[in-house]
Amino acid sequence: SSALGAGAAAGPLALVIGDVSLYHDLNGLLAAKMHGLQATIVLLNNNGGGIFSFLPQARHEGPFETLFGTPTGLSFSDAVGMYGGRHATPRTWDEFRRQVAESFEAGGLHVVEVRTSRAENVQMHRFLWERVSQEIAKFLEHKGMV
């Protein structure tokens, strides 16, 4: 809702949001419909609260899923249509880029839903953090700062 309000004042809007966040504020899309806003929403749908997968409690899979993962299994297509928007689910990066570009050209409300995996996301981030840490350590060692 806050982003749509800013979009109403400042013009075309691009928003990246997770599935749980969009679910909790789904009725905010009514503003886009009522005010004819131009908004492109990139929905990162990992079927739950992905940010919590980085916390230590994620190791306790059973209670974690219920209390923190909060998978909903929701399909957002019908909800977006209810507010007069267009929904797309790209399967490749080329499709993603095309659908986002087309959303800006067409105007109105568009939701481009990218389905991801919470487990793969955590694994990828941890790999990248380790690589960045290694490169920083090399740099500091090279500069005599370690």
Rank of each mutant, 00 (worst) to 15 (best):
E105Y: 00
E113I: 07
L44Q: 12
G7Y: 09
W129R: 15
G69S: 06
S133K: 10
L55D: 08
L29S: 03
Q38T: 12
G107Q: 01
A8F: 08
A101S: 00
V111R: 04
V20Q: 02
F104N: 00
G5C: 07
L15R: 06
A32Y: 03
E61G: 09
R98V: 03
A3D: 06
I136K: 09
T116V: 13
G85D: 01
V122F: 08
G84T: 08
G5N: 11
L44N: 04
Y23A: 11
A9P: 00
D19Y: 01
F96I: 01
N27P: 02
Y83C: 01
L15T: 05
T92F: 02
N27L: 01
G81K: 11
P63K: 09
Y23M: 13
L55I: 09
L26F: 06
T70F: 01
Q134L: 13
T70Q: 05
G48V: 07
L74M: 13
G108Q: 05
L29M: 15
A58V: 03
F54D: 00
N121S: 13
M34R: 07
R86S: 00
G144M: 12
G69F: 06
L37S: 10
G108N: 10
K143I: 01
Y83L: 05
T70W: 00
T40M: 05
F64S: 04
S2D: 10
S133M: 13
G73C: 11
M124C: 11
T66Q: 14
G69I: 03
S103K: 03
V146L: 15
H24E: 01
T40Q: 02
M82C: 13
